[in-house]
């Protein structure tokens, strides 16, 4: 049992890492009252950035370029949504569409029409001495890439910031009720910009985590993780720790799918992949406890008003 469980948990955490990074960013963004559907665009931009940076200057540079690429995509989203005050959802959808196209065009331009055989330097797993040898959970928690450790640290930091500091309270107030936050002397625009940019950086890092696992780029390789992250955020009830837990659930479902596919089970493996979405819908319906979106989420510049 244990020798099945340990690799399964390891795969779960590995699969969940890109998703959890992006979902953490989206949580911060939605807590500031902005829904960034363009997160998927930041992830795919991060993927291309990671490949470009890594191929040129090595894996650490890849991570940095990925974060910058995600930031750039989010900055474009921010200008349109926060400065020009256009509708968040339609803008986000368009940003994703544009990022798919732009990366699909830029990749063959940078690496030649083939490009597929590209082999870039990646970040290997770093085993934490002693702890990684723990039974069952050792490899899953202490034998991961540096980006996973970064995820753990950032999740903890975001939780502490949002729930244990005055500035975090202000941040959440912006998401719940912008006019009230303004009256309380909080600079709403600034918080919303920070939220949007965080989602971009973390989305980009999510893209980097993805690239560091597969070692190459392919068109639309983000495969909807930015959209899945929206579900993860909702399932995690708009908290950083909840998002991490929810991402692990989605990661576990995917890891389980691989096992069932390999094992030739009678149960359709698609059921496991679809299950987390159904759970999320159930949670949103209030069937599994209360989950409520920030009160001001996406309210500003709704399309029809």
């Amino acid at each position: 049992m244990i020798d099945v469980l340990a690799p399964f948990l390891d795969a779960t955490v590995r699969t969940a890492t890109p998703l959890a990074l992006a979902a953490l960013g989206e949580t911060l963004c939605e807590r500031a009252g902005v829904i960034n559907v363009g997160l998927e665009g930041a992830i795919i931009a991060g993927c291309l950035g990671a490949v470009v940076g890594s191929a040129a200057f090595g894996a650490p540079a890849g991570v940095v370029v990925a974060a910058v690429a995600g930031l750039a995509v989010a900055a474009l989203f921010g200008v349109i949504v926060l400065t020009a005050r256009a509708d968040q959802i339609i803008t986000g959808t368009a940003i994703t569409l544009g990022a798919y196209g732009a990366t699909g065009v830029l990749y063959p331009l940078s690496f030649g029409p083939g490009g597929a055989a590209l082999d870039i330097p990646t970040l290997g797993p770093i085993a934490i001495p002693g702890l990684s040898r723990l039974p069952v959970i050792g490899p899953a928690l202490f034998g991961q890439s540096i980006l996973t450790y970064l995820l753990f640290a950032l999740t903890l930091g975001a939780w502490w910031y949002l729930y244990r500091t005055g500035a975090g309270l202000g941040w959440r107030a912006v998401g719940e009720h912008p006019p009230a936050a303004t009256a309380a002397g909080i600079n709403v625009r600034r918080v919303q910009w920070l939220g949007v940019l965080s989602s971009g950086v973390l989305g980009g890092l999510g893209g980097a985590a993805l690239v560091m696992q597969v070692g190459t780029f392919s068109e639309q390789m983000s495969a909807g993780r930015g959209f899945i992250a929206l579900a993860v955020v909702a399932l995690g009830r708009w908290t950083p720790h909840g998002a991490l837990a929810a991402a692990l659930l989605f990661g576990g479902a995917t890891a389980l799918q691989y096992r069932f596919q390999a094992g030739g089970s009678a149960l359709p493996y698609q059921l496991f992949v679809a299950l987390p979405y159904l759970v999320t819908l159930a949670v949103l319906a209030g069937g599994l406890g209360r989950a409520r979106a920030p009160g001001g989420l996406g309210r500003e510049a709704a399309f029809s008003r």
């Binding site: 349109i80 020009a84 005050r85 256009a86 509708d87 339609i90 803008t91 959808t93 368009a94 940003i95 569409l97 544009g98 990022a99 798919y100 196209g101 732009a102 699909g104 065009v105 063959p108 029409p113 068109e219 510049a301």
Partner: peptide, 25 residues
């Protein structure tokens, strides 16, 4: 002409973004 067809989605995106910005204005 060897131009990746996904270029069209960049176009679609610019269309959507121009329209929403224009509308918000």
């Amino acid at each position: 002409a060897g131009v990746p067809a996904v270029l069209v989605s960049v176009l679609e995106a610019s269309v959507i973004l121009s329209v929403v910005v224009w509308r918000a204005r």
